[in-house]
């Protein structure tokens, strides 16, 4: 499938990130598998608490205590100088060790959710970008400053040279977001991880930022992992999408395919809950029935079955369906197991 996609740059295999607590183990990420291809935008969607942020933090080994990657692989094709590629299993790296510190910021950069809180209020934005440049590139301070201003210009920061000395709290929300993108781009990373980067800003600015990300992605050919709960943003920006629920992948595939032919009942429910311009006015918007269960009380079998309109008693509440190829997508649902096995055969 998907022969026209580029090389896989990041392959997450059966990733499990668990949080042991006094009351039991919270399985925030419990067997997630997906591939990120060169030059594509992969959207990761799901309700709050479905483990999408923890998945992304795991990729950078940034999971806070007491969380820990307990199983699985995060295979990253590292290619700094453009010649030799080495494959690194990030899941095996020591948290805060030398290797992961080289990868963080240098190869995989984060675009965080709250740009206001993500800049230190005590240091100018310029100095924080210069710091990143000098960490990963062997350049002088002047050269680093030149690079920083170049990046600020690239993300459309007006009068970048003066803004270099500005503090984050002196900038507007949109400019702050641009500044943090400049920081992420500072070392030309091959992967950008955007963690709901547009939640904190208004819709107009949001559109501009998405436009910017699209342009940067085209120009640099970098790959973006884009986390959001906003399906509209995914439709605009992403090539492929991963739908997560309670730490597991429910469905994944090309956006065009998944959004037009959602196969998993959860994906269908999410899509149905989006208001449409063409729907009748004043009708009640469908919602996904029920709420996300308590993290320590995960249902047996398919985690979605208590909320699923099509759940098969005796099947869905007993075993977890495998993630299987169904036409162009992958779906983890018993409703599609027969088709999948036929496809396999």
């Amino acid at each position: 499938m998907n022969e026209d996609r580029g090389d896989v740059v990041l392959s997450v295999r059966n990733l499990k990130t668990h949080f042991p607590t006094d009351d039991g183990v919270v399985k925030a990420v419990d067997g997630v598998t997906f591939d990120l291809h060169q030059g594509e935008v992969l959207g990761v969607v799901g309700e709050s608490g479905c483990g999408k942020s923890i998945t992304m933090k795991s990729v950078m080994q940034l999971v806070g205590k007491p969380g820990r990657i307990v199983d699985g692989q995060i295979l990253f094709k590292r290619n700094r100088d453009g010649t030799n590629t080495e494959e690194v299993d990030i899941a095996k790296l020591r948290t805060n060790g030398k290797k992961i510190r080289e990868i963080r910021g240098g190869d995989i950069a984060l675009i965080p959710q709250e740009p206001m809180a993500s800049f230190s209020p005590l240091h100018s934005i310029g100095s924080q970008i210069v710091e990143a440049v000098m960490l990963h590139q062997d350049v002088s301070k002047q050269e680093a400053k030149r690079i920083a201003i170049e990046k600020l210009n690239e993300v459309g920061m007006p009068s970048a040279e003066q803004r270099f000395d500005a503090y984050s709290w002196q900038l507007s929300g949109g400019l702050r977001q641009r500044a943090i993108i400049a920081l992420a781009l500072a070392c030309n990373p091959s992967i950008l991880i955007a963690d709901e980067p547009t939640t904190a800003i208004d819709v107009t600015t949001q559109a501009q930022i998405l436009e910017l990300l699209k342009r940067l992605q085209r120009e640099h050919g970098s790959s973006i992992l884009f986390i959001t709960h906003d399906l509209g943003v995914i439709a605009q920006l992403a090539d492929h999408v991963v739908v997560m629920y309670l730490g597991r992948v429910m469905e994944q595939g090309a956006v065009s395919d998944v959004f037009t032919h959602p196969r998993h009942p959860y994906t269908r429910a999410l899509l149905a809950s989006i208001p449409s311009l063409h729907s009748e006015p004043r009708i009640e918007l469908p919602t996904v029935a029920g709420g996300i269960p308590h993290p320590l009380q995960r249902p047996n079998g398919c985690p979605f079955h208590p909320r699923c309109p099509d759940a098969i008693p005796g099947t869905c509440d007993v075993a977890m369906p495998k993630l299987l190829d169904v036409e162009q997508s992958k779906v983890a649902c018993f409703l599609h197991h027969d088709e999948a096995e036929e496809a396999d055969a």
Binding site: L62, G105, E114, E131, L183
Partner: peptide, 14 residues
């Protein structure tokens, strides 16, 4: 626990 601390870590700072 603030995001700016995590961001500094995400940059690759020791």
């Amino acid at each position: 626990d603030r995001p700016y601390t995590e961001m500094a870590r995400a940059k690759g700072l020791p």
